[in-house]
Amino acid sequence: MAKKLRELTFELKAESPSALPTDFLHYGVVGSGDMEVIMEHQELAGAVRIIVRTPVAGFDEVWRRVLERFVNQTGMADARIEINDNNATPVVVTLRLHQALAEIAEGGARHV
């Protein structure tokens, strides 16, 4: 029997938080070695809740570290983030998350 798609949940808090400046944003394509993300505003007392769906096992701690760094670097707060992953490496995850944020900054107007 094949293994099931895994769902990881992280609750993180930035050192110097500021609220996500958008309601809703979707970014990315779940190609091989890639991922997509939804970022939404949600009142979480300054925290960020991140749900990751991934076929890969054994990298839960790497996910936590990658996401922690992202949240701390961006100071993101009060946000719910959902990621559909298909074997994206940490560099791709980081790049896509930053690109998604940049898209928010540009008013969600870029289509890459």
């Binding site: 070695g33 990298f59 074997n87 490496t89 560099v91």
Partner: peptide, 8 residues
């Protein structure tokens, strides 16, 4: 090099 190759 990328820190991770294919398939992590």
């Amino acid at each position: 090099v990328e820190t991770f190759g294919e398939k992590m």
